[in-house]
């Protein structure tokens, strides 16, 4: 059982994530080989002392590629998440503050459209229009991902508007800006942050999935999704080349979900009992 006094999930999540971060960010020093250097004589080798996770079809070291690839995946998903978070917060605050006005209606219908539009198709459309690159992939992800943050923020704001402190701020002559940033934003920030840690997991999975489809970073740069795609053709003969990226994806998503759960136990006002 995990609760605020014994934050098991929070601690274990942080421990796993920091280990991963050390491995991934330290890749230039820790990785035994150059991730893009090909060595055709050592194609599809089984795990050994020289290559702990084996080599891929061009003879590149899978471990080195996994560690380096993590940089691309992790950094791009964190950047995408931050962008989505900020857009979502701003949209949600605006829509909630001017609830029922034309701004609110337009924003909410836009959200409805985005929610009903298949995300993968949108990413492919963007790739088709602007060409495939990591930046375009991130644009597609952000364009869809802010929606959940906006919805959550708006509902928190609508709730907070019924509270006495909101009426008090109005009576004291607070401007709309002051109310949004001093009264409403602090109330929205903790639920949104909790949601963000959960979303980061699925965001990583989506980026990986899109890269797997060939929409993200282009070869020979290592990336977990494209590594999985690479290994697809050879996994009957050499299943080990999938293990590295798959294991790291699994651990990263798990770590973020654990942290999300721990944070919710800590911060969520509804889970906390009185006193």
């Amino acid at each position: 059982m995990s609760n605020a006094n014994h934050p098991i999930s929070l601690i274990s999540g942080i421990v796993v994530l920091s280990l991963l971060a050390i491995l991934i960010l330290g890749a230039p020093f820790l990785a035994p080989y150059d991730p893009v250097k090909q060595n055709v004589t050592e194609r599809l080798e089984k795990p050994s002392m020289e290559h702990p996770l084996g080599t891929d079809r061009f003879g590149r070291d899978v471990l080195s590629r996994t560690l380096h690839g993590g940089q691309t995946t992790l950094i791009s998903s964190v950047v995408a998440l931050c962008a989505a978070l900020i857009i979502g917060l701003l949209v949600g605050l605006t829509a909630g503050m001017f609830h029922g006005s034309i701004i609110d209606i337009i924003l909410m219908r836009l959200i409805d459209v985005l929610l009903s539009f298949p995300f993968m198709v949108l990413a492919m459309v963007i790739a088709a229009l602007f060409g495939t690159s990591l930046i375009h992939l991130l644009l597609a992800v952000v364009a869809v991902w802010w929606v959940s943050f906006a919805r959550l923020t708006r509902s928190v704001v609508l709730h907070a508007k019924n509270e006495t402190s909101f009426a008090a701020a109005r009576v004291l002559g607070a401007t709309n800006g002051a109310i949004i940033f001093k009264e409403l934003l602090p109330k929205a920030i903790s639920p949104v942050l909790i949601l963000a840690t959960f979303e980061l997991g699925s965001l990583i999975l989506s980026i990986v999935a899109l890269s797997f489809l060939g929409l993200g970073s282009q070869p020979p740069a290592p990336e977990w999704g494209s590594m999985l795609a690479d290994g697809r053709d050879h996994f009957m003969q050499a299943p080990h080349i999938l293990i590295g990226p798959a294991l790291f994806i699994f651990l990263t998503v798990l770590a973020f979900n654990l942290i999300g759960e721990g944070l919710r136990d800590r911060l969520d006002p509804y889970e906390k009992s009185e006193l």
Partner: peptide
């Protein structure tokens, strides 16, 4: 309307809820 608050002020029932806790 904002200028009005220099002339008319209000005290609420739930004092704690009317103050920003931070």
């Amino acid at each position: 309307k904002r200028g009005l608050c220099k002339h008319i002020q209000m005290v609420f029932q739930d004092a704690r809820a009317s103050l920003n806790p931070g």
